[in-house]
Design a binder for these strands. Sequence first.
RNA 1: GGGCGAUUAGCUCAGUUGGUUAGAGCGUCUGGUUUACACCCAGAAGGUCACAGGUUCGAAUCCUGUAUCGCCCACCA
Length: 1107
Amino acid sequence: MSETPENEIPKQYNPAAAQEKWSAYWDEKGLFTPKSGGLTPPGSPFCIVIPPPNVTGALHLGHALNNTLQDIVIRMKRMQGFDTLWIPGVDHAGIATQAVVERKLFEEEKLTRHDIGREALVKRIWDWKEKYQERIIEQLKAMGCSCDWSRTRFTLDEVCAKAVRHFFFKLFKEGKIYRGKRLVNWDTHLQTAVSDDEVFHETVAGNFWYIKYKICIEEWAECQENYAQKLEECEGEKLSAKGRELIAEYRKEITDFKQQNNLDPGYVVVATTRPETMLGDTAVAVHPDPEAALDKAIENCKQKLANASEKEITEIQAELDAIEQRKTDGTLDWLKIFAELAKTGWHVTLPLLNKKIPLVLDEWAKPEKGTGCVKITPAHDPNDYEVGLRHDLPFVNILNKDGTLNDNAGTYEGLTVKQARAKVVADLEAAGLLVKVEEREIELAHSDRSKTPIEPFLNDQWFVKMDELAQAAIDAVARHPRASGELEEQVDCLGSRLRGNDDIIQIIPHRYTKGYVDWLSEKRDWPIGRQLWWGHRIPIWYCEASGEKRVESDEFLRKAFAGRDDVIWQLDTEKNVWRICSQTEDLNEDAIPGCKIKQEEDVLDTWFSSALWPHSTLGWPDDTPELQRYYPTGVLITNRDILTLWVARMVLAGKFNTGKKPFNEVYIHPKILDKYGEGMSKSKGNGIDPISIINKFGADALRFALAYLTTENQDIRLSLDFECPHCGAVVEQTKKNRTSVKIQCTQCKKYFLTQWARDYSEQLSPEDRSLPEGTMTGERFEVARNFCNKLWNAARFVLMNLEPFTKEKSKEAEALSPAKEFLEDKWILSRLATVTKNVTDDIENYRFADAMRQLYDFAWDDFCSFYIEISKNRLNDETTKERVQFVLVHVLTSLIRLLHPVMPFVTEDIYQRLLETKFWQQNGYDTNVPSLAIARFPESHEELISPIIEKQFAIFQELLRAVRDVRASRNVPPKTEITFSVRCDEATAELLEPMKQYFLSMAKAKATAFGPAVQSPALVSVVPLTGMDVFVDLSDLIDVKAETAKLEKEIAKLDGFISSKEAKLNSDFVNKAPAQVVEGERKSLAELQTQRQSAAEALAKLKEVKP
RNA sequence: GGGCGAUUAGCUCAGUUGGUUAGAGCGUCUGGUUUACACCCAGAAGGUCACAGGUUCGAAUCCUGUAUCGCCCACCA
């Protein structure tokens, strides 16, 4: 070869080229697919299933983190020889995706889903899904994820659908699925129920209306005698003066009523933030014992006051005053009266609709709140629903599914909730029934999907009974941290985590276990139906059970499905229909002779299919080789937000379907936050596309930066800004511009596009579309990019120095034997062994930041700053050259293997270049491993770890730093060589002797002498170090004044340390602390005193020299 | 209301079971075209570890309380 390698290797690593080249290469070699032919290659199986991203949109940095960590783990395992499989895929995300597509449909075409129909809408969603699935997979590939792309799954595909059907059937068969009327969170915009978890609360300005409900005149008349008697009894009890006054008033009213027979006898006042719901009221509740309840409230309040901080006192005091006032201002007396009325079965008239509704006694009515009485709307309020059940009240639904009022609302039918509210209020006011209106902030439930207010709505719903399922999922996790001392049977004797235990799942970090267990412990039944069009349709068919025979007997069904065990049914007695569940196939309309059957319209909750992900992707319910080999999977790596919604349900579904846990471990990683500390999300517009980072810094830098920041208990805050593609200026990302598709540069005033232009290109004019896209820039990624480049250049150096090499047959092992004494070799090999051991251990325990920091420090500080620098001398010397070449290659190849899981592209690129060298090919290195991705992950040569060597080398480093410091601080010109000597013990001198040449090459400093006899020359800068005095000869350069000042400062500092140490050694410390620690302190004091003495001597000498 | 986490240098963060003088990167300052790397090299300055108590010979680290911030869950006629 005539060209030197120098000409081939660019000075800067080019990520784009490497990414393109090696992605294709890995693909072509099929490295990420388990070897076909029986699925039994050597190595234990290790499988990860991807948390399938939603097809709602493209991935952001949160996903990038999630997938980077998975890839690090799977790549390491692969290199360790495991038979690895990482299954990729995406989630159909029912509500979310349908909402996105519907919104787009409305924005662009002003059409609703009802305008285009089920089939057309579903088709559009499929189109959307295809587009985003493709984009997501592209993003994952760009990040370098080593998934087996041939097994990409989608939660709605056939494989998953089959699993869903089997799961549903199994639940149905075991009686764990039921249908019932429940109050659900109704999204009037999307017209579907959403689960509690899909609801968020937002504070909005609202009103508090006080409404009069008249006590029924008819009742009044009927019961007046009875009532008068009750009042007498009341009076006998301890009523306040005000109460007596009211009784008197009341009695007068009764008298008046008797006389006139048309007088308003009284009313109950209730307060509400949702006045329109009064149309669905079926009772008014009052507390059965208002006085006791009020006393209790006062007591609670007082207690709170006693524990309150100063800031809260005023507020709580005001609250307490307000409650106490109720005892004297008549409120309590009225409540007592109402309670009596309720007890004797009185009614009130529901205004506007003029319906008679009962007064009921219920503890839900808190005397300290509102007016003390509360209107009960069982069909539209969760608490009222409970009251309704307790008192067997009618459930009057006043809403249609679209959020308008239905015919139960009388003249208000057809109005929207908002319109109805206005009209109800106006009508009440006109009727003189509105007492007052207060302004008030209210926490309003909103749908997370449509961002519109939730209406509680009574609806038929499918549920899964959670009792046993949830318990199984609770029992499946390790409840105690390692070595906690509790429940020792779950913690092995070494206190490390139990791995491979058949039943127990470890949640890491352990603190998340509590949330998981608490959530499951509520065992709230799981509402699984969604009134959507996008999802797995519930495999239930209804058959009208008309005709008495059919109601009583299922004979006709048995006949229709004779010999089939994949169809089962149950009778809905309330509606008189058969519910038929089919496990495998959809049923035809005419599957039952003489009877038309109809499939359930609802689809299943997205989590119903996601819950099956670990086993459905492996082929369950079929007993596939994959399922046998890879299930349970190794680890699930995910976000804490879905620990309950998803992880818990995967565990319960996995246990239920397969009898086994779905994964051995769950690792919960931090959350990516933006510069304002907000989580990234598509709707906020702060979700950065990883491609923007990759374009600017490269995939390796993205991955390294994220892993470097993944610590155990801190979320990752990333401050990112735009970089103008025209002038390179940094344009701050603000809350305002982060959602824009186009931004104007603050510097050059030209426009550029953002990542959103990729999603919303239709918002751009044709000329805008040709604008360049700005990249995102951020400090953390710069650091990581620089690290990639550092590694690249270290490799470049090594590659450039491999030729010529000695052709004699030398083996790496020989070169690495400790026989030949080179301190720096032993040192770097010791460091490498330590780092290898730690990094392996850290990644296995998900301590990513620790692993990355060690690799970064080792590569940069140890390998580049010291070993490579030192090697330069030896490479020029034929006698030492060969050995240093071997060490360089050994460390470099180890390093790129260690780094490959996190930085796959740059390391592969380096590896491939090494493979091409003659040095590699002719020195007995393995040339049969075509890619670093399947090379062996380094194993630590622990026998090479030597704390003594590392300590000795540290002396050299310390000395070098001291000499360099003298140079820098005394402004010695860079080209001027200086000389120095060191007073130290014999052993240190011996150690330093061979390092002489390196002081010269690395600090342009010539060492004249080492040893105990070394004397301080006249004009020196002295640096007292531990066990050494360094004398740097500055004859021509010294500034006596500055040097004196420096030494005086040094002495003062030492004196400070010395006196504090002396004080310590004169205290109780010597008696109480362990002898070892005391000894250490004594030594340290002696050392300080020696240092001080050296400094003092030097100072004395300086003072002799007159400037 | 319940739970979890955080508070360390100007900024972003490390800090392993308590033990010499609390670390890194960025930024700042000084000096450098040393044939791997200016995406670099050498060096420097910069911290009352949120606050108050306590335990201890010894506390960033353990305990109690306070403040501030963030997240999750529940609830609010």
